[in-house]
Structure formats: C-alpha cells, structure tokens
Design a protein around this nucleic acid. Structure first.
Length: 334
DNA sequence: TTAATTTGACCGCC
DNA sequence: GGCGGTCAAATTAA
C-alpha cells in the first residue's frame, strides 16, 4: 500500500488547511469574547443569544479541529490517493486477493487497511457526529461484554470516503460509548450548513461537557442526515440507554426514546462537541450528564488529558483566562 | 423499490 | 491459530 509523505502533499494545500483552521479558531475566539461581554451583563439583559454564541464558538472550534483532524497536512499515515487505490483492489475480483471469486456466497474478501489516523471519543451517550454512517459489521470482542460495531461513511462508494468508526460500550461503570474514528472524511457531505440554535435558551446546571483540545487530532466535521444509521443531535444527546447493547437497532432507531421538544429538532445541523452542549438542553430533562472526552491515539491515558469543564467554561468563568492562542498552537503542534 | 441493517464468512495481522 | 476488521448476501424497514 502506498502512503503519502509530507512532501507528497502540496504545500499550498497544507497551508490553506492550516489557514482555514486558524480562521475558524479566530472566529471562535472573537465569539468567545463576545460571549464574555454578554455574561458580564445581568442575566435579564442577556436574552437568549448566549446559546447562539456558545453554539457559534463550538462550531468554529469543531470546524477547526475537523480541518486539523483531516491529518493530510501533517500526518503521513493516511492511505493516499482516491479511495480508490484501496477499494479498487478490494472490489475488483480480478485485481483482488480473493481465492475464490466465483463463489456466490463469497464474503469477507478484503484487504485490511494499515494504520490510519485514529481519534477516540468517549461519551456517556451516543453522540451525533453528524456524518452519515452505515453500519457494516458487528463483532463480539474477546473479553468484552458488549459487541463492537463497525461503521463506514455512507459515501464510501459514491465519493470514495474512507472514514470509518467503531463504536463500543465500555466495561466501565457507568458504561460509556467509545467511538474510534479511523481515517478522515473526504466526502463532500462534510460541508455543513449554518448551525441552528437549540430549542432551549437555558443551560442546565447539571450538565458537564469535557473537551480535550490537547492533541492535534479532532472530531470530524459533521452534517446531519435523518435516516437510517444517521444520528441526530436530539437522539444522541437526549437518549441514554447504557444498559442496552449498542446494536444497530439502538443506534439507528434510538429516536423511539426521544421526546421531541421542538418540531425542528431533528433538522438541526450539529456536530461532535457542540452537540454535547446542545444536547444538554434536552438531556437534562432526564437528569443526564452529558460528558465527552476526546482524545487522540497519541495521547495515552485520560489521566493527563487537559479537559475543559464546560460548566465552568460557560458559567461564571473569566474568559480572559482562556489562552486560545496557546490551544491553537498545541493543536497545530507549533 | 430503495436503502440500511444483520450476520456468517473470509482474510490479514500478530 | 486466534482475533479482529471487512465483505456482501439476505433480510428488514421506510
């Protein structure tokens, strides 16, 4: 298999990716400043726009991280070329490694991809990352209570998007949903429409959201679709059913458990970390504590993760303490 | 009818 | 050889 080298990737592309990420982070910083000003006002004077601002901040951060997470400008372990170079081998019986191409029930012939950049997300709920995923497998894992579920991007075939993810309920108490993203989305479906604001203008007191910006990796960008295995922000955030196995049924039809607070809820454009914020509005109604820990495969244990408690972050915190530039540098490894 | 999920089989890697 | 990741036919759902 062929892997890219940092030299192989056009410098201009890398520069533009970094530039776009910086622009998003700048937007986030500016919005944060705006939010800071807002929070200094008396609660009665604020209106509901603080929710708008927090969503805007999270969108900017999320977008920036997604760009950085693409890894193309920095990492060299991502398979190169159109999907393509991998898929064509896998799907072309003539070029593939299949022993028995004439078999009608020939399943499983595949060429395992080498190490791709991974990104792990640990959440208390099934968090909507906004991408269109299709489940392609489920596997009982040795010494694991819960099966591991395998998802690939819906646009794998039409756009050759190589992104996959694995979702598994951890053994911990309480159970958490560990989502491992592998590779990055190359599909155009990642282009997001402007985020709409949640139906609630209040921020729950009991909600906690942990974000780790320590690594250069990030959660993927998102785009909502409302069918099949596509998660929705309302679903992922409001629904907590950790006692059940993470079957495709639970994933794709968890809306059964979701009280619809707003008719427009399922049409929201949302994304990873920001969902968790938006989700707290509905989730809190059930006493959920929404938490998510993002970590890259390069950051070992969660013990040394630097997390931002979003409660403190958005309620009564002096935002001047937040060194956004420092975070940016960490993110870009500069 | 179309698209997503299920599930057994297959294969690469350790 | 076993485990885990992927494929794809069969099944199910919209």
């Amino acid at each position: 298999m062929e892997y890219c080298s940092s030299q192989a990737w056009p410098e201009a592309v890398r520069q533009s990716s970094v530039g776009r990420a910086k622009e998003e982070l700048i937007i986030g910083r500016d919005t944060m400043s705006e939010l800071q000003t807002l929070l200094r006002k008396a609660p009665g004077e604020r209106g509901s726009s603080e929710v708008d601002l927090t969503n805007k901040v999270l969108l900017a951060i999320d977008t920036a991280l997604s760009i950085l997470n693409s890894g193309d400008w920095k990492f060299c372990d991502v398979p190169v070329g159109s999907p393509s170079s991998v898929d064509q081998k896998m799907e072309d019986p003539a070029g593939g490694k299949r022993k028995n191409p004439v078999s009608k029930d020939r399943r499983g012939g595949y060429k395992r991809r080498k190490v791709a950049q991974t990104w792990t997300k640990l959440t208390a709920t099934q968090v909507d990352d906004g991408f269109a995923w299709r489940k392609y497998g489920q596997k009982e894992i040795l010494n694991a209570k819960h099966p591991r579920n395998y998802f690939r991007c819906t646009h794998k075939h039409d756009q050759g998007c190589q992104a996959t993810k694995q979702v598994q309920i951890t053994e911990e108490e309480p159970p958490m949903y560990r989502t491992i993203y592998m590779g990055h989305h190359t599909c155009r479906d990642t282009i997001r429409a402007p985020r709409l604001v949640s139906d609630s203008d209040s921020y729950p007191d009991d909600s906690t959201c942990l974000l780790n910006f320590q690594s250069s990796d990030a959660s993927p960008t998102t785009r909502k679709q409302g069918y099949g295995a596509f998660f929705t922000s309302s679903i992922s955030s409001a629904h907590v059913k950790p006692e059940s196995d993470l079957t495709a049924h639970n994933l794709s039809r968890s809306s059964e458990y979701i009280p619809v607070q707003s008719p427009d809820l399922t049409s929201f454009e949302s994304s990873g970390p920001s969902n968790m914020l938006a989700g707290t509005t509905s989730g809190s109604e059930y006493g959920d504590v929404i938490s998510g820990v993002y970590s890259s495969c390069n950051t070992a244990s969660s013990d040394d993760q630097q997390s931002l408690n979003m409660d403190d972050f958005f309620v009564g915190h002096d935002f001047e303490d937040f060194q956004f530039d420092e975070e940016l540098h960490q993110c870009m490894g500069t």
